Amino acid sequence: MLILSRKINEKIMIGDDISVSVIEIRGDQVKLGVEAPRTVKVFRQEVFDAIRTENKAAAESVPVLPALELLNKSKTET
Rank of each mutant, 00 (worst) to 15 (best):
I51T: 06
M13R: 14
S61V: 00
K56A: 07
K73I: 02
M1L: 12
V30T: 08
D49A: 08
I14S: 07
F43W: 03
A36F: 01
A50N: 09
G15E: 06
S61T: 01
T53R: 03
L32N: 08
R26N: 13
T76R: 15
K41L: 07
R38T: 04
P37F: 01
R52H: 05
S74C: 02
I14M: 06
K11Q: 14
I51C: 02
T76A: 13
V20W: 12
E10V: 04
R44N: 00
R38P: 05
N72C: 05
R38W: 06
A59P: 02
Q29Y: 02
V64P: 01
I3P: 10
R44H: 02
S74Y: 06
K31Q: 08
V30H: 04
V34S: 07
D17H: 13
L65M: 10
R6T: 05
I8F: 01
K7I: 00
E10K: 13
A67Q: 12
M13N: 15
T78Y: 04
I23Q: 11
G33S: 03
A58C: 01
I12W: 14
Q45W: 04
V30R: 08
L68R: 08
S21M: 09
Q29T: 05
L70M: 04
K75P: 04
I8R: 15
G27K: 12
D49E: 14
V42W: 02
L68I: 14
